[in-house]
Design a protein around this nucleic acid. Structure first.
Lengths: 353, 353
DNA sequence: CAAGAACGAAAAATCGATTTATCGATTGGA
DNA sequence: TCCAATCGATAAATCGATTTTTCGTTCTTG
């Protein structure tokens, strides 16, 4: 380390060149690993690099380069464990390949999603990992199509005619949940979700319904969905129970729904699994430490991230061919929140509010 | 929108210039809002920009510029609500000022923290928002100092001799927790935490201890900390209870500790607040829907983020003067997990494992 | 021994913007 | 009427790399 260089302008490739007594082009070649440089000169370059603490400026480097080594990631939010882990994984994978990840949150807004994407296009990113707010038919994907961007869609998608997609196998996981619940004897099950995230949530619902009916044609499946936000879902659920409906199990198609269901159980003084069973799509750290631990579908974050990056880089490197649609298997964790119906009466009476 | 430009090379400033019949310099000036351009020419530039769908390439723009409009953010993790929200806030604030935020996770590793910072230095970011893994005396801050980078430290810091700091007022919040617990009659309280995040956690402990002793000099405060990870904390806690210790309240100095305490209570069959009270530093969405809802200290994420950005941009714009140390007030939420001691006997017997 | 191939490195062009220096035309004052 | 100041805009330099082109040397080879 040179102690006199702090706060000074950083050394450029020309500084290295003059210190080494060669041209800038030669320095560039040495650092790129070109072998047609005389070993003696290469050594002098390395020495100068060491002495000056030189490091390539990625901005300037990408300037001249055809493909910039930047990957954009657009997630609906950063606050949940799922997307938090996703960003962490994507960042690590990008870094491994010498790319920089620029992540942005669309905050569940399709308008913002498109703005962010336009900004990433301005940066001329090599590729984009997009977890759409709604599904593969949103404005962001259309923008990418129209501008010839390369990218991969993840999470709330099933397949697309222009982009590769990678997501959790919602249908298969939901079928497994159905096997679990129906297998334990539940014959009246409530499914809750948001309809907004159409593709994936619909797959979860259908996967569950078809398997449940296959196992027991007499099973009753009620469905409560809300179009937009989570609050209408909460009040619909309240009305449903208020009308005297008493399913023995609830399957929530998304994390927020699991929270809503839990809080509604609390309000009524119902306990899992004695009064009602609960399974949620999407796992979280707290679910295994609360009492009872909540049964959940664990999404394969690591696999989704790495497959998304694999397929993305393949496209970045020029691979052609029809878009692929991958579904990665989930894991279903049976925890204490699931039991057999009839093991305990509803302990609560009416509403407590 | 021109429909024939998809998939083509994007328009550069020279394309705009030739379409408008002026030079590239004039285009640059028009877009920068310089007034010494003939209105007629300015209009032709705007027309050409519109027709070609031209947008400035931020990479090329930053190239020539002295200060690059990029802000780096380094967080210990993205998986928690706190840092997830923090990144969302920081990104929005950076965007408001026309900057791009590049976020990276140090994954609780000081070595990685420094590597990331070096990479951000390579990008010649205008400034860095660093939430250090340990505290303000880590290798990353030292690197920033040595290289004359401008930045602001947040979260796990109290003050620094070289950088501005912004964090939650841990001591004041902990004092309030002490008032709450001692006020309810608790006289034997266990405090758990990780010693690693020295500065802040120590402030939390001292803030709690001094206030508790001030209110009741006879109060007994036991402390369990673990140096490195959360697992040793778990086993220490298990040993502690195994030796027959029976505090009436637990105050966890960090989120993971709250989870550990909860799971240990579960293992022993203890319920809050009848068997033991619980308060955690750091709030999370699930804490208000589980039974019981967990009392928690809410950190002012929004204020920390905006103050950090304010002070950072002030430095970026050249402000001099001694570093400032801000502490933002927290909110303490009293929930059902806190009660008075003696309201219920320990329901569990020995270990259930 | 001279023409040509092979080699290694320097010079120059390039990426897309911003900024500085320069230039021509108009206007002003003496 | 002539020189200087002003205005508007263009040409050129610059940022820091990479890539292409050019240019000497040395090594082959007929």
């Amino acid at each position: 380390m040179a102690q006199h260089e702090a706060k000074q302008r950083r050394a450029s490739i020309h500084d290295v060149a003059s210190h080494a007594g060669v041209s800038a082009a030669t320095v560039s070649k040495v650092l790129a690993g070109v072998t047609t440089v005389k070993p003696e000169n290469a050594q002098r370059v390395f020495d100068a690099v060491e002495r000056l603490g030189y490091r390539v400026d990625p901005l300037a480097s990408d300037m001249r380069r055809a493909k910039r080594r930047i990957i954009g990631a657009i997630m609906p939010e950063f606050e949940s464990e799922f997307f938090g882990q996703m960003v962490t994984e994507l960042e690590g994978l990008a870094e491994q390949r010498g790319y920089t990840l620029v992540a942005a949150s669309s905050r569940e807004s399709e308008a913002r999603e498109k703005e962010i994407l336009a900004r990433m296009h301005d940066w001329r990113v090599a590729g984009v990992v997009l977890a759409p707010v709604r599904n593969e038919h949103g404005p962001a994907a259309a923008f990418m199509k129209a501008n010839g961007m390369t990218g991969v869609l993840i999470d709330r998608v099933l397949s697309d005619d222009a982009f590769d997609t990678v997501s959790a196998d919602s249908a298969a996981a939901s079928a497994e949940v159905a096997r679990m619940l129906v297998g334990k004897g539940h014959s009246h099950i409530l499914v809750i979700g948001l309809a907004e995230q159409a593709a994936t949530v619909r797959a979860r619902l259908e996967g569950f319904r078809s398997q449940a009916l296959a196992l027991n044609p007499a099973v009753r499946i009620d469905v409560i969905t809300s179009e937009v936000s989570v609050e209408p879902l909460r009040s619909s659920l309240r009305d449903y129970f208020g009308q005297g409906e008493r399913p023995t199990a609830v399957y929530s198609l998304l994390l927020k729904g699991t929270l809503v269901a839990l809080s509604e159980f609390r309000r009524r003084g119902w306990h899992c699994p004695d009064d009602i069973s609960l399974v949620g799509f999407d796992d979280a750290e707290w679910m295994q430490v609360t009492w009872p631990a909540i049964a959940a579908v664990v999404q394969p974050v690591h696999r989704i991230a790495s497959e998304a990056m694999n397929v993305l880089f393949r496209r970045v490197e020029g691979a052609v061919g029809p878009p692929t649609a991958r579904l990665e298997p989930c894991q279903v964790l049976e925890r204490e929140s699931v039991g057999s119906p009839g093991n305990g009466p509803y302990s609560g009476g009416g509403d407590r509010q």
